[in-house]
């Protein structure tokens, strides 16, 4: 969240309203049917209308609210936030789906967990690396070998556990 809660609340309210409008417009492309024989678009349209109405009301309230009222609703104790860690974890979770299959499980998990550990425990590079290695290897052992989950495997996985590629 941004340091200015009022601004971030406004952004969220606008985003929700936009999303509602987008959903409502999307529902118009579906067949409505009638009450005797409701089509696939009837419920989405009803949801869409209600969403637009409620998010518009929310938007109105947020824009009318005083900064003090909004500040009261948000976490009052969070003055100094670890934005670097938040952004890092978010980037890691967003990047993981794209690197998991190309890099295979151990390398991608090692990379992602190493970055997260470094962000949360800065300065402990060797410890973070060893822990990431243990996490990636341990997770592969438990999930792929014990539970038979099909995790993306390549040379490293085959070399370490001799279970062959599973994807």
């Amino acid at each position: 969240m941004t340091a200015n809660p009022q601004r971030s609340h406004k952004i969220i309210a606008i985003f929700l309203f936009g999303l509602s409008l987008f959903y409502l417009l999307g529902s118009f492309r579906l067949k409505m049917g009638n009450l005797n024989n409701p089509g696939p678009g009837l419920i989405p349209m009803a949801i869409g209308f209600l969403l637009v109405a409620f998010t518009a009301l929310h938007l109105f309230r947020v824009f009318r609210a005083t900064p003090a009222a909004i500040g009261k609703k948000t976490n009052p104790g969070a003055e100094k936030k670890n934005y670097r860690a938040i952004a890092g974890i978010l980037i890691c979770t967003a990047v993981y789906p794209f690197i998991l299959e190309p890099l295979n499980f151990i390398l991608s998990t090692l990379l992602v967990s190493f970055v997260m550990l470094l962000l949360l425990r800065p300065g402990k590079i060797l410890f973070s690396f060893l822990l990431s290695l243990a996490m990636a290897g341990g997770a592969f052992l438990v999930f792929a070998r014990l539970f038979g989950v099909g995790l993306p495997s390549g040379f490293l996985e085959t070399f370490l556990f001799r279970i062959g590629g599973s994807t």
Binding site: I89, C92, T93, T109, V112, S113, M116, L117, L120, R121, L131, M135, A139
Partner: peptide, 8 residues
Amino acid sequence: ILMPVIVI
């Protein structure tokens, strides 16, 4: 340590 483990 726990938070990266939870994410993984």
